[in-house]
Write a protein that binds this DNA or RNA. Structure first.
Lengths: 215, 215
DNA sequence: GGGTGCGGTGAATCGTGGTTCAGGGGGAAC
DNA sequence: GTTCCCCCTGAACCACGATTCACCGCACCC
């Protein structure tokens, strides 16, 4: 249990290395990042990295395992109190892009480094990735059962479209050096398109989802 | 899209190297691919590669320059005869995912290797990428002018959502080993969501709150 | 005070692989 | 037949960077 529950210097140093790795990977990409550089950024010796991680790959993998699960947990927790599926989707969009806007380095690692090697991707990223897609698909199913979402789109497909759309916005935001508020605007557009796209168009129920926009 | 207009062995060999590079990059990713391996796959000597390309990076860059432009040209050509903007969008989706399904290797290079290094990405991929986004955004503008698409979504945003969605579908299709027809089904879902999402709700739509929702 | 162990260090190692370059061969010109 | 030239070859070079490991020094215990 070297998690943050334990406040000894061991856990501390591991975390520092992880954070440094996120920064360095974000700036240069996995393969162009030097272990020595990460060590320097973390303020430890080169060899110290190998006390906490098996090798450079393990460092990248650990970033995923630590961060993505936390992200899924956060999303699930924040959706818990909300009833309206459309509002849930809006929240998912806000949360994901919010995190991205606030932790640009992490965003860059997840968006770009995620795809460094397809082997790595298949082996480690896919399961985590799937967990996230399942969360989204779950919301869509709910909405379909409640009759507010159209049934001719498989929830899983919608999840992929949603995730891809957000990932794409993130990518363009990251490679162009956009300000955070541009990402917010983009998020609003994405929400409009996707939620209107999935909404059931029943003549009888003009859904009063007058619920305000982004929060 | 054959470069084989020029039938001399020079052009031929360059093309062979490019094709081999696509295969190898697709399988292992850029950084894990060995130049020697590409040479072997192309049936040439290691040194021959350097007669046609400045270095390994240049090889990757050349793949983009050669292939993406061709892809844009193809899309523009195929859209020329179509009037209905919604139909154009549907075609864009079909064409992009069609190419992906048919040239899985190329798809993998464009989807995954595209993001190997953000420096590379910013410098070379972004301009090409933008050209493609502009094509999509142009269709959206047309539709807005014609009154069939909603005006509260900037065309450029829609382009990013569309591209991201397709890219996301491609990614999940590539990392899971899906059959081509699964990609087709996914394409249909994406088309439904995105086109319904952008469509102006005109006649018979009893939605008083329509415009305000998402902003 | 002295011993023990553990977290930490960073220079040296060593395999790797991109790139180079000294040469081979064959076709065309003379 | 000889020469020239172009295209190509692939073994060797050498920089580079992940990983190792011999060595510190501090904290704690006897």
């Amino acid at each position: 249990m070297r998690a943050s529950i334990v406040r000894n210097r061991t856990g501390d140093k591991r975390e520092r290395i992880l954070e440094a790795a996120v920064r360095v990977f974000a700036r240069k990409g996995f393969f162009l990042s030097r272990v020595a550089e990460i060590a320097a950024a973390a303020g430890v010796a080169d060899g110290t990295i190998y006390l906490y991680f098996k090798n450079k790959d393990d460092l990248l993998i650990s970033i995923f395992e630590d961060r993505i699960d936390a992200l899924c947990d956060a999303v699930e927790a924040k959706l818990a109190g909300i009833a309206d599926p459309a509002e849930k989707l809006r929240r998912i969009i806000d949360i994901q892009l919010g995190i991205v806007a606030e932790h640009r380095d992490l965003a860059e690692v997840l968006t770009i480094n995620l795809r460094q090697s397809s082997r790595f991707l298949k082996q480690y990223a896919a399961p985590k990735f799937n967990r996230y897609l399942d969360v989204i698909a779950g919301v869509v199913s709910e909405g379909q059962d409640a009759g507010v979402f159209r049934r001719d789109v498989p929830p899983r497909h919608f999840a992929r479209v949603l995730f891809g759309a957000l990932d794409g916005m993130t990518l363009t935001w990251v490679i162009g050096k956009g300000a955070p508020e541009r990402l917010e605007k983009a998020a609003a557009s994405a929400a409009t398109i996707l939620i209107e796209g999935i909404r059931e168009r029943t003549s009888g129920a003009p859904r009063a989802s007058a619920k305000g926009g982004a929060t």
